[in-house]
């Protein structure tokens, strides 16, 4: 218990200290990299709620990155730069989409659930491609970052701290949720559905609620991501994105609070290393050739994830 608190504290301090250090060293690139990682960590944290704690293997979490991104992008395109409005639309819109997708897919289970969430996300991807007004296949540039009173996201350091704060908030929210009565039902239904039914729980509404909450948080990550990249394309919703977010959760450790964060860092750093830092040009150019088998091996031999190294599951 004590060591875990210390680890968390050290981790937060490290992240908080990064901007001044990176700028001092004249390496603003790291600021950018870590900010991007933390945005994906939020997406992974939200997926962990339904995948890790709820047992719902959703292969469509990128859908909410997309909906959140498009909500911000479309509003900005029409001249609405107010961040509260944009992010509110991103969160609300993703929640609605999650409600629609979840209502249909949670009635099924197993392989059907995987295929259906994947299919619906692909549908949204094609929808994005067909929106010619908003750039279609090529996407569009975000004219300006979301505008808030008092907080200026155009300042990269400020934006960094906003993302850090929201990531910590996401961890805290999921922590509270899974330990609440609601979370108990969600986890119980994953642990032993027949038993949950026998004592009188009907899992459907709880699963759907979790699905919607996760979707809303995914939408927030989407709003952050489009501000980060300043560019919006249907690729936000590409099916490989969904797979990557899923890998972050697994790599870090399902149903743990540190897992998705650790997974996001590990996955994106490995990706970054393979594609940019390795001294062999062949590896840098064809990094996916190496990432793929690495992922297969991690599934086969590294089942418990990074958080498993530090100890048991926490709940």
């Amino acid at each position: 218990m004590k060591t875990r608190a210390i680890l968390w504290g050290a981790f937060v301090l490290l992240l908080a200290a990064l901007p001044p250090v990176a700028l001092e060293l004249g390496q603003p690139f790291y600021l950018d990299l870590v900010r991007r990682i933390m945005i994906f960590a939020i997406a992974a944290i939200s997926l962990n709620l339904i995948l890790g704690y709820g047992g719902m293997v959703s292969f469509g979490h990128a859908a909410y990155l997309g909906v959140g991104g498009y909500a911000v992008g479309i509003l900005a395109f029409h001249g609405f730069d107010n961040g509260l409005l944009q992010w509110g639309a991103a969160i609300g819109g993703s929640a609605l989409v999650a409600l629609a997708i979840g209502a249909v897919s949670i009635r099924t289970s197993g392989v059907y659930f995987i295929m259906i969430t994947l299919a619906f996300t692909q549908m949204l991807y094609y929808l994005g491609v067909s929106l010619e007004e908003y750039g279609g296949d090529d996407g569009m540039r975000l004219r300006t970052r979301s505008e808030f009173p008092l907080v200026d996201l155009k300042d990269p350091v400020t934006f960094y701290y906003v993302v850090l704060g929201l990531m910590l908030l996401s961890i805290f929210i999921v922590f509270k949720l899974v330990n609440s009565r609601f979370g108990m039902v969600l986890r119980a239904a994953k642990s032993n559905e027949a038993r949950a039914l026998a004592i009188g729980f009907s899992p459907y509404p709880y699963r759907l609620a979790a699905f919607v909450i996760a979707g809303a948080m995914g939408g927030l990550a989407g709003a952050l991501l489009v501000n980060h990249t300043s560019y919006l394309t249907p690729d936000f919703m590409h099916w490989t994105r969904s797979g990557e977010i899923m890998f972050m959760v697994i790599l870090g450790g399902m149903a743990t609070h540190a897992g998705p964060v650790a997974g996001a860092f590990a996955f994106l750093l490995v990706e970054d290393m393979l594609s940019a830092w390795v001294p062999l040009a062949f590896v840098r150019e064809h990094w996916q050739l190496f990432l793929g088998p690495l992922l297969v091996l991690s599934v086969l031999f590294f089942r418990r994830g990074l958080a498993g190294i530090f100890g048991k599951h926490d709940g």
Binding site: I114, G243, Q288, L289, P293, L295, V299, L300
Partner: peptide, 28 residues
């Protein structure tokens, strides 16, 4: 073969890794 005994999640993830591999191999 090693994946038959695993759950669907592992199967999805491992075959996802295979896809990345094959797509890149073909591109090379």
């Amino acid at each position: 073969r090693p994946l038959y005994a695993r759950d669907h999640l592992d199967q999805v993830l491992a075959t996802f890794g295979l896809i990345l591999f094959f797509n890149e191999l073909v591109a090379i």
